[in-house]
C-alpha cells in the first residue's frame, strides 16, 4: 500500500464506449474504491470515447501534482500514442503548467496482475483441485502489435514458474494462434478455467469468446449477457469449462493501480 498523497490527484484513463456502458464501469468502480481510501486529494476518470475527455479532465484537477494511470491491459497504440497526445505529455513526467503530471505504465502489465488471475481462477472453479485444471488466459491478439500478447505471455510464464499446481497454464487468443477456439486440443485436464485478460466485460467476453469456446452457438441477447458467467461449468467435449468475467472487473484491480503508482515512484519519479 502506498502512503497518502494529499497534494496529488489521480486520473484513471479508460477507453470507454459510446455504445456499451459496461466498458467504463470497472474504471469508475476502481476510482470509487481508491477515492474512499482518501489517499489522493482528488480522483477522476477520463475516457477516449466518453466524458470527461482527457483534455477536459485536466481542467478538473486542482492539485499541484497528478498521477495518470492507463486502465489498459497492455502497452500499445493508446498508451503510447493517444493518451500522451491528448494529455500533452512529453515523457514520464510533464510540467503542464497548473499541475505536474506523472504517467505510469498501464495497469495490466504490473506483476501484481498474477495475484488477480490466481484469485479469479480459484473463485470460478471453487473446490476443484488445481491438478485437475488447465488454466487458459485469453486475450484478443492481433498480428499488428506484439505488445497486445506480451502481457499475457508474461503472466503465463510467471504462473508456470510459481508451480502452484495447475495441470497446465497456457495463453490463447481470439484472432491469432494459439486460438481459443482450439481449447479442447490445447488442454488436457478434465477441467478448463478460462479467464479473459480484458479490462472490461463487453462483446468479446459476453459474446465472442463464449461462441469460440462452443459454450454458445450464437451471440447471446444483450439482456442476458451477464448470465454467461453464472452457468458454470459448461460441459463440452467430455470436459468442464469454468468461464470467468474479464480480469479488469476484479475489485482488487484498484490495488494493482496503486502498485503501479508505487512502481512509478520507485523507478521514475524525479527527485524533489
Amino acid at each position: 500500500m502506498i502512503s497518502p498523497k494529499p497534494s496529488s490527484a489521480l486520473i484513471l484513463v479508460g477507453h470507454g464506449s459510446t455504445l456499451n456502458p459496461d466498458s467504463s464501469q470497472p474504471t469508475h468502480d476502481h476510482a470509487d474504491t481508491i477515492r474512499r481510501t482518501g489517499l489522493f486529494s482528488e480522483v477522476h476518470c477520463a475516457f477516449w470515447k466518453e466524458e470527461p475527455s482527457m483534455r477536459e479532465v485536466l481542467r478538473m484537477v486542482d492539485s499541484p501534482e497528478v498521477y495518470i494511470v492507463p486502465n489498459f491491459i497492455s502497452e500499445g497504440y493508446f498508451t503510447q500514442n493517444v493518451i500522451p497526445r491528448e494529455f500533452g505529455l512529453s515523457g514520464r513526467t510533464t510540467d503542464l503548467g497548473h499541475t505536474v503530471a506523472h504517467y505510469t505504465d498501464p495497469v495490466g502489465i504490473h506483476p501484481s496482475m498474477t495475484r488477480l488471475l490466481l484469485k479469479r481462477a480459484a473463485e470460478v472453479a471453487e473446490g476443484i483441485p488445481l491438478t485437475e485444471c488447465s488454466l487458459i488466459i485469453v486475450g484478443h491478439g492481433t498480428g499488428l502489435n506484439d505488445n497486445s500478447t506480451k502481457a499475457i505471455k508474461d503472466q503465463v510464464e510467471i504462473i508456470r514458474a510459481m508451480n502452484c499446481g495447475f495441470a497446465e497454464v497456457i495463453d490463447a487468443y481470439m484472432e491469432e494462434p494459439p486460438l481459443i477456439a482450439d481449447w479442447a486440443t490445447l488442454t488436457s485436464a478434465p477441467n478448463v478455467i478460462v479467464v479473459p485478460f480484458f479490462i472490461a466485460d463487453g462483446l468479446h467476453s459476453f459474446q465472442d469468446i463464449p461462441v469460440l469456446l462452443g459454450m454458445e452457438s450464437e451471440p447471446t441477447a444483450a439482456a442476458s449477457q451477464i448470465e454467461v458467467f453464472r452457468r458454470n461449468p459448461y460441459h463440452l467435449h467430455g470436459r468442464q469449462i469454468y468461464y470467468s468475467s474479464a480480469i479488469g472487473t476484479e475489485p482488487l484491480l484498484a490495488e494493482v493501480m496503486l502498485d503501479q503508482i508505487a512502481a512509478f515512484d520507485t523507478n521514475h519519479k524525479p527527485a524533489a
Binding site: E51, P52, R59
Partner: peptide, 12 residues
C-alpha cells in the same frame, strides 16, 4: 462531475 462531466471545470 458525474451528472455533467467536467462542466464545472470547463466553466471555471
Amino acid at each position: 462531475d458525474f451528472l455533467y462531466p467536467a462542466a464545472l471545470a470547463n466553466w471555471l
